[in-house]
C-alpha cells in the first residue's frame, strides 16, 4: 500500500491515482476507477498494470485479477485505437442493431472482439449501453453515436479513419 517509486503511468495519471486513493474511506474503493483509467492510458490491463495497481491499493495481484475479470469493460488484451461497441440488446435489436453490427463486421473485416491488422479499430458486440430511446446506438471508446443507419455508421467510421473522430477518454 504505497505510491511506487517508479510508475508505468504518465505523470498526470500517476498524480490522479495518488489523489484517487485518498477520496474514499478505504483505499480499495479506488480500484475499479483506477483500472479503467489505467486501461484508457495503456490500452488494456497488462500484468504491469495489475502489479502497480495492486501495490498502490495495497492488495494482492490475485485480488486485482479477481475484480478486473468481473467487469466486462476491463480487458487483458489490447483493443484497437478505436473500439467500436455495437449494442444489440432488445431496443437496439428492434431498430437494427444487428444490421449495424453486421455492417461494421463487413466494413472493418473483423468480428466480435477482434482488432484490425493496423490496430486502428476493434469491434465488440455489447450489452445495453443506455441509449434505448435513440436506438440503434454504438459507442466508439466512450463516445455515443445514436439513431444509426448503415450510412450514418459509414460516416462515423470514415471520421475515425481520417483522424477526425472524437478522442475522449
Amino acid at each position: 500500500m504505497s505510491t511506487p517509486a517508479t510508475t508505468i503511468f504518465s505523470p498526470e495519471t500517476a498524480a490522479r491515482f495518488d489523489r484517487l486513493v485518498t477520496l474514499y474511506p478505504v483505499r480499495r474503493s479506488a480500484l475499479i476507477p483506477m483500472l479503467l483509467y489505467a486501461q484508457d492510458e495503456v490500452g488494456y490491463i497488462s500484468d504491469e498494470v495489475v502489479k502497480e495497481v495492486a501495490q498502490r491499493i495495497g492488495i494482492t495481484e490475485l485480488d486485482v485479477r479477481n475484480v478486473l475479470s468481473y467487469y466486462s469493460m476491463l480487458r487483458t488484451k489490447p483493443a484497437g485505437k478505436y473500439n467500436i461497441q455495437v449494442c444489440t440488446n432488445i431496443s437496439c435489436m428492434l431498430r437494427g442493431g444487428y444490421e449495424i453490427l453486421e455492417h461494421c463486421k463487413q466494413r472493418l473485416g473483423i468480428g466480435h472482439k477482434e482488432v484490425t491488422p493496423d490496430g486502428q479499430f476493434s469491434l465488440e458486440e455489447v450489452e445495453c449501453i443506455g441509449a434505448c430511446c435513440w436506438a440503434p446506438a454504438i459507442q466508439v471508446n466512450y463516445d455515443f453515436y445514436d439513431e444509426l443507419t448503415p450510412e450514418k455508421m459509414d460516416a462515423v467510421l470514415e471520421e475515425y479513419k481520417t483522424g477526425r473522430g472524437k478522442e475522449t477518454r
Binding site: 490475485l62 479477481n66 468481473y70
Partner: peptide, 9 residues
C-alpha cells in the same frame, strides 16, 4: 494465505 480467488463471472 489467500492464494485462491474467483475470476470471471
Amino acid at each position: 494465505v489467500w492464494a485462491l480467488g474467483i475470476q470471471n463471472r
